[in-house]
Amino acid sequence: MSIEEVSELASPAPVYGGAEPLLEVSDLRVRFDAKGRRVNAVNGLSYHVHAGRMLAIIGESGSGKSVSSRALMGLLPPTARISGSARFLGTDLLSLSEREMRRHRGADLAMVFQDPTRSLNPTMRIGTQITEAVRAHGDVDKRAAFDRAMELLQLVRLPAPERRFYEYPHQLSGGMRQRVMIAIALAADPKLLIADEATTALDVTTQAQVMELLLELQERLGTAIIMISHDLGLAASYAHDVIVMYAGRAVEYAPASTLFSHVRMPYTRALLGAIPRLERTPHSLLPVTPGQPPDLTALPPGCPFAPRCSRAQDDCHAEPPPFAEHEPGHWWACWHPCEVGGPAEEGGR
């Protein structure tokens, strides 16, 4: 069975009950053609985000989580082949021209990136980088932009904003830089904030402070947040809903509380097992999922995780499991899901 057909099965969008979703991604595919090789980065990803919620997208590197979010923002290079749809308040973002997309960038969807050191222009003052974002949308004069920048710097709790406004990125600590990045992202009151590994480059204390800030801002401003991370523990602590991605597609999707108490997909379980815990026996080995992350240029015909999965049987290698709502609000793609309450280490082989 070809990859195209596989993902047909995975296309139905999970519906999370309640109001109209803010963003509705369905059957998103992104592909890069390089040197005659085809890299299938995202293979039929579907999800919803509601206003005021925080959705965590979890996966290893190469699982397509960053590429899929950049596709939404139109930030992939023009040679990326993107298909599917992403309805944002009734507009399909993926069908917009670059010029039309620019109106939404920053104003409706904003993004905070992983490495605040590299993501801020080193030769521009902090203040200029913020006012630029303020003035990108709407006719704002210099004075008003300055006031707004001050307001934003206070909002993200940057100490001494009047001084910081005139400083350069290298004069700030990593945590402060990420606060500036968040201020930039919030400049035009976006309805959706995508935090792409926004805390990965920070130390643990700062990480928590930035996450707390995001949560607080979400409560105050009602912004929906997509948090992209490889850190399931972080997702468990902060997100409302969690999507686990593997090989460019969703493999499990549930509210955070459900997911962590009733994990069904062996891959998710393997990820959970790899989190160090205090209650674990000291100096015991962390379980490691064997094998390599999937080769995106040549995905297997069956379940892409099957080669690494301890529960895999013949049918897993033959046909990919559909991504379906097996329990209310809980979606997964697996032929032989884990029993609820089984040992956490069970996932990997």
């Binding site: 980065a41 290893e60 590197s61 960053s66 590429v67 950049r70 990136f113 992983q114 792409d196 990965t200």
Partner: peptide, 10 residues
Amino acid sequence: MAIVEASASP
């Protein structure tokens, strides 16, 4: 990891 993805794709 995002770095890898982001910088590898261009």
